[in-house]
């Protein structure tokens, strides 16, 4: 499996990173180097092996249903690039 400029462009959009047209081939080359490296895994027989879901053998701890957080809208927006009346503001979204 290898990637070309078109695939890189598509991935760039999925990841929402603007990629300049002139860099696509170079990026494809770099990604292919990495993908080539990870393709060593094809040598490993993984039949019957469960994929790891957690590195520690435990199950999920649950939390009590209590209100213990929130109530600080000013702190939520204090780092926002743009906000008004404790709303975040973004370029208009067309649905």
């Amino acid at each position: 499996m290898s990637v070309d400029a078109n695939i890189v462009k598509r991935i760039g959009h999925l990841a929402r990173i603007k990629l300049e047209q002139e860099n696509l081939d170079g990026l494809a080359g770099e990604l292919n180097t990495i993908l080539g490296f990870v393709e060593q895994l094809d040598e490993v027989d993984v039949s019957g092996v469960e994929p790891m879901t957690s590195v520690i053998p435990a199950s999920l701890r649950v939390r009590k249903d209590e209100i213990t957080d929130g109530g600080y809208a000013d702190k939520i927006v204090s780092n926002a690039p743009l906000s008004e009346d404790n709303f975040f503001m973004v370029p208009k979204v067309v649905e």
Partner: peptide, 19 residues
């Protein structure tokens, strides 16, 4: 993503802003 904190580089649409 430029919405809640940190850097924002504007764009004409939300997707452009993200990218």
């Amino acid at each position: 993503d430029g919405v809640k904190y940190g850097l924002r580089v504007n764009g004409d649409s939300i997707d452009e802003m993200y990218e």
